[in-house]
Simulated scan of single mutants.
Amino acid sequence: MADMVQSGGLAKYPLAIISKLLEVFGKDLGGGYDIGCQFKTMLDQSPLGPLACSLNHTCLVGTFHGHAHRHLCQLDHLTMYTKGLGLEDLETCERTFSKSNALVSTVQYASAFHRKQAISGYFKHNDDYEVYANLSKFLYDNYKQALDTIRECEATLPGLMKEQNVPNEQVFEKWLAEEKAYLEQLSREPPEETLQMEYWEQLVKLTASKHDLDASQDAWAAFPAENTQLYASDATMTKKKEAL
């Protein structure tokens, strides 16, 4: 256990994790990371790159973070487009972190020793009395859910495909490939969309300017006429004082 007090989430931490996973589990692994798309570039350029490539390691983005990424990134890194992941959303760590937030009040002002002691004790208790105890039920429920999902899809999908005139399931793969090719060609936004956005922004500015103008005119119109002479007198006195 290590204290990340100042460094923050540097790339060396997930690289160390990937190194251990490749050493223990070998090939055909998929790992989820909130910036898995960027991390893939880091991994490829690191000394681990050749090993990860030879073992067919795949960098992915978890469901919680994935939908905030660019559409092209989603096609490459979301779990829903990755064969073999099944129901996994790659957000186990997020749920674990959320659950362990209950420790904050007890470790926030603790010494380094007692902080690590509390965290270690918490996760040991969680493993012994919750994770391991519920592991069989977790696997059973997930397996049952997977079978139910497959059964429902097999019953529903053919009818939907018929309604939409989709001849076979290979069409879905073709659509994804076409969508990816289209997005890769978009080095910049289409000129029509850019002009529409710029036009809309100018309309917003015009509306704001009209509002300010109306407010100024209303304020000027509300200025009492009888105060005009008083203002002129004050202006004359000011000029005389400035001339002295």
Rank of each mutant, 00 (worst) to 15 (best):
K180N: 06
E169Y: 06
W200N: 15
K180Y: 03
F123W: 01
N134C: 14
N165P: 07
K144A: 14
V131I: 13
L160A: 11
E198L: 15
D127C: 09
H125G: 09
A133L: 06
G159P: 08
K180A: 02
G121A: 06
E201Y: 04
E193V: 14
A133S: 14
N168H: 14
P190N: 02
D141L: 04
N134M: 13
E193Y: 05
P190G: 05
Y182L: 15
P190T: 02
A155D: 08
L139C: 12
K144M: 12
S187E: 03
E154G: 13
S187K: 08
G121N: 11
C153M: 11
Y140F: 11
P158W: 01
S136T: 11
L160G: 08
Y122H: 13
I150N: 06
P167Y: 02
T149Y: 03
A133Y: 00
K124H: 11
A177P: 12
S187I: 02
L186R: 10
C153K: 06
Q170D: 10
L186M: 15
L186Y: 05
K162L: 07
P191M: 01
L157F: 07
T194N: 03
S187N: 08
H125A: 02
N142I: 05
L135D: 05
T149C: 01
K144G: 09
L157G: 09
R151I: 12
E169Q: 05
E152S: 12
I119W: 00
L176P: 04
E184Y: 06
Y140P: 06
K144H: 12
Q170Y: 03
L157Y: 03
E154C: 14
P191Y: 00
P158R: 01
K137H: 08
N126G: 00
Q170S: 15
F123D: 01
P190Q: 02
E178D: 12
E163L: 04
S120H: 04
Y140C: 12
E192H: 07
V166F: 00
E154K: 10
E173Q: 04
E179F: 09
E201G: 12
K144P: 05
L157E: 08
I150D: 04
N165A: 15
W200H: 14
E173D: 07
E189D: 12
